[in-house]
Design a protein around this nucleic acid. Structure first.
Lengths: 227, 227
DNA sequence: CAGGTAGTTTAGGCTAGGTTAAATTTGAAT
DNA sequence: ATTCAAATTTAACCTAGCCTAAACTACCTG
């Protein structure tokens, strides 16, 4: 019962719920009502209501007072949204000269309006990239997503070399600052020093240039140590 | 009073109303409730309701039982939508290999989601075209639109030469057929024959190829006679 | 100039998706 | 085990946009 594998277009709201739930689930294992509300900037009771409807249509399961779990169908849909979002961001930066930091908002609107065909054409025009410009993996058309675990910059050993692999895409000011430090996905650096008590990390690039990165920021930078 | 020159984003519905009203107004001089309803595929009473709200926000004026007239602000907004639509269509065809006939639906959705910045960037990437691929003029960013009057193919004198200048963009099957006849905006032809009683028009292209075009279709093809 | 029809508006209702206030449940801390 | 705060759900309500049925107006025609 339910679901009926409807190939209809979901509403903008529903698409947003699924995206957020997917994200919360994959970050913290579960998605609570209040966390969803927080992420969508709406009141918790609104979430309760929508969750009920989504459960009825089979996109997720809900255990009262506990949390929410995407079903197979819900996750497929969420990954479709993630794919759209990341391809759009990649396209805007690659083909329309958008900057790293002002692309998120635009993608956030477009992802609800594009057709599968348009996504396919953008993907093709970009040469079917595996990652977006923030370093995030792009799900494939049939819902596969790479799940490499990276290491926060704060956990790279002093003296070790590493590549920056991934940064978030939401906070435009943060991104602008990250870029100003010369930090972009792919760039290699050595960790020169790490202050204790959640102090800053000092890194050195190939050209000898050194930068000091505050703990909080460094912690959000996903890196891969060079063995 | 009213209006307050709100620079807020209008709703998708309102944007569609304005587009349709603009079109009806510029085609037939006025926009009646039932014509708006017809064009939007909704019931007339829904139009009455929305028209009232639009009048309150100052986007149009309404005289009960008569019709509706866009205000300065309403027309500006309508032209903005037209600009978006046509730039998007041009972009999809020019940069993403869409076909002439499958682009309308996609643009219809995107035009509600794009930012001014994206339109600007597309326009730039296209070299600021003056017309879309169907031959329709693209309004400028500050709301100017070319208003050349063309002649239906059915009104070109036998023996005269003419350019096809503009075709509609709504009906995908029709466009496919038009394209299959070798008819594209810009193409030149001679009128070889015209049957009376709303009969077909026979035209000849530069390469001697002749085609017979049914009256109804020919009447929808906007041409410019070569003097 | 009286009517009838076509077009328009009003009245009353529905759904999606949000709100706040109040009730309920969970679970952590005594 | 009890209590209590935080999280969640329920209840009641709101707005945007649609709907149908009924009332109203404009205008054409005899």
């Amino acid at each position: 019962m339910a679901a009926a594998e409807a190939r209809q277009r979901l509403s903008r709201s529903i698409e947003d719920y699924l995206k957020v739930i997917y994200k919360l689930q994959s970050e913290s294992g579960s998605a609570q009502t209040s966390a969803i509300a927080e992420a969508l900037s709406i009141a918790p009771p609104s979430v309760s209501g929508m969750v009920k409807r989504l459960a009825e249509t089979g996109l997720l399961t809900h255990t009262r007072y506990r949390g929410v779990q995407l079903t197979e169908a819900g996750e497929r849909q969420a990954l479709k949204m993630l794919r759209r979002h990341r391809i759009i961001e990649t396209y805007l930066i690659g083909q329309l000269e958008y900057d790293w930091h002002n692309v998120h908002e635009e993608a956030e609107r477009l992802e609800h309006a594009v057709s599968e065909e348009l996504i396919e054409r953008m993907d093709h025009a970009l040469g079917r990239p595996s990652h977006d410009p923030h370093g995030a993996p792009i799900p494939t058309a049939d819902g596969e997503i790479e799940t490499t675990k990276y290491t926060p910059m704060t956990d790279i050993a002093v003296g070790a070399a590493a590549h920056l692999r991934m940064v978030g895409d939401k906070d435009s000011e943060r991104l602008r600052f990250i870029a100003s430090l010369g930090l972009r996905p792919g760039v290699q650096f050595d960790v020169v020093a790490r202050q204790p008590f959640n102090g800053p990390v000092t890194i050195r690039f190939g050209d000898e240039r050194e930068e000091v990165v505050g703990y909080e920021l460094a912690h959000s930078l996903q890196c891969e140590e060079v063995k």
